[in-house]
């Protein structure tokens, strides 16, 4: 099992490299740059900015478009590029390769580089500030989801086709169908603005975590409830449960000691993708509740063409998801005697 875990861990690196490369290519291919704004900065200043942030490489310019070194005016540069489209493309490709190498070298030392938008900060600081909040939010949501989902699923399975089952599964259907951008504002309206029990936005002590955690977790609670119910119903009909019952164990023990372990398997394998969902779902929740997590940079950094920040968010998330999936696979091995880690 240790060998298996190690092999999987080593396997993460090529996957990360592919993710890094793909997202870099996509970011570079998007039109517009980080320094385009309604009030354009003077050409000289923009050039300096681009040099500073490796969006321009003097070596590439000299090699492919020597005319650019003199012509600073954007109009002149446009004309030069239009005249020599192939040289211009080659120059861009060359600059891109330089930038790719520069970022990759940074990543190798654990440095995500400077932010293109936030001039006083490095990307590492944004991740360091945002990631714990996003993880915290995800964990709170996961707790809500597991607690509500497991309880509801168990009750529904035990009282199959009773009113409790129908009520729980009805709720689950609602939970799956109500999107979190509807549920969030509704909860705010009720608990923050009308009853004034909980704060309407931001992040801090435990009161701040309840509404966003519940909103984010609700859909997962619903899935988990359905999965638990399904898993339990399947397990309860197995021979070993009948054996346990025949041995005279109390129903409580049969369910909690024997059935739950098997019934949980679908839930556990669902936790990997659920982590992914919690992470991407937090983009919306972080906006609604104005939470200073990392999810907001997914969208904002890409829109701002803040290449370094956007890529760091993608890579950190990828690491998080890959590790979460690995942990889930390992946990399945512990829980399910049918899973083996042999070649």
């Amino acid at each position: 099992m240790l060998r298996y875990a190690l092999r999987r861990l080593l396997g993460l690196f090529p996957v990360l490299l592919v993710i890094f490369t793909l997202s870099f290519v996509l970011m570079r291919a998007a039109p517009g740059g980080p320094f385009d704004a309604e009030k354009p900065v003077p050409a000289e200043v923009k050039r300096n900015l681009e040099l500073k942030y490796h969006l321009r490489e003097p070596w590439c310019e000299a090699r492919f478009l020597p005319a650019l070194r003199e012509g600073l005016e954007p109009a002149v540069e446009r004309a030069v590029r239009a005249e020599q489209p192939w040289a211009s493309r080659a120059e861009k490709l060359c600059t891109g390769l330089f930038q790719y190498g520069w970022m990759l070298a940074n990543y190798a030392t654990g440095d995500f580089g400077p932010s293109y938008k936030y001039k006083d900060r490095s990307v590492n600081e944004f991740i360091a500030a945002g990631l714990p909040v996003t993880i915290q939010l995800g964990l709170v949501a996961m707790c809500f989801a597991l607690f509500i989902g497991l309880t509801a699923g168990l009750i529904a399975a035990i009282r199959q086709n009773g009113w409790a089952d129908h009520a729980a599964m009805g709720m689950a259907l609602l939970g799956i169908s109500i999107p979190n951008f509807v549920l969030g504002p509704l909860l705010i309206l009720v608990f923050a603005l009308t009853l004034v029990w909980l704060p309407p936005a931001r992040w801090g002590s435990w009161e701040y975590m309840i509404l966003p955690g519940f909103t984010l977790g609700s859909a997962y609670a619903a899935y988990i409830a359905r999965l638990t119910r399904g898993g339990m119903l399947e397990v309860i009909r197995q021979d070993y449960i009948r054996t346990a019952r025949a041995k005279g164990l109390s129903e409580r023990l049969v369910i909690l000691r024997h059935a739950v372990r098997g019934g949980m398997l679908p839930v556990v394998s669902y936790l990997g993708p659920a982590m992914a969902g919690l992470f991407t779902g937090s983009i919306v929740i972080e906006r609604i509740f104005n939470i200073p997590g990392m999810g907001r940079y997914f969208v904002d950094a890409a829109l701002n063409r803040d290449i370094t920040l956007a890529m760091a968010v993608v890579v950190v998330d990828a690491i998080f998801l890959l590790v979460a999936n690995l942990l889930v696979d390992l946990a399945l091995g512990l829980l399910d005697p049918r899973v083996r880690y042999e070649e």
Binding site: A192, P200, A201, I288
Partner: peptide, 18 residues
């Protein structure tokens, strides 16, 4: 300075007296 570019959240904070 409470940082947020989400106007809906900010209006809610104002309404709640924050």
């Amino acid at each position: 300075a409470i940082i947020s570019d989400d106007n809906h959240a900010m209006v809610r904070l104002f309404r709640a007296g924050a």
